[in-house]
């Protein structure tokens, strides 16, 4: 038997999943990753390794990065096997 508690009936101090618990982390960034989609081979390594989960690789359109939350660590540029991602200083 499973006991179901309706969240609306009780005020339980439960944290809910939400984007940006530390604010817009894009403001931490010192260097911005710039992608050359013509050189990209769609290997997905940058998407798998991105610690903030902001990189999306689509086979048709290539790599897109959500700059609102990208922390600019440069890990994607280091794991890219063809050097299609360059880190350029923020203005």
């Amino acid at each position: 038997m499973r006991v179901v508690v309706e969240p609306s009936r009780y005020k339980i101090p439960l944290a809910r999943p939400s984007i940006g618990v530390a604010g817009k982390t894009g403001s931490w960034r010192l260097e911005r990753p710039i992608v050359d989609n013509n050189a990209c081979t769609r290997c997905f390594l940058c998407e798998i390794h991105c610690p903030v989960n902001v990189i999306r690789v689509e086979p048709e359109t290539g790599v897109s990065i959500n700059y609102d939350y990208c922390k600019g660590c440069g890990l994607c540029a280091d794991v890219c096997p063809v050097g299609a991602i360059k880190m350029v200083p923020e203005e």
Binding site: I19, G20, V21, T25, W28, V52, Y69, K71, C73, G74
Partner: peptide, 9 residues
């Protein structure tokens, strides 16, 4: 989810 409190890298 993006925007967690982890250090870069």
């Amino acid at each position: 989810l993006p925007g967690d409190a982890a250090c870069p890298g």
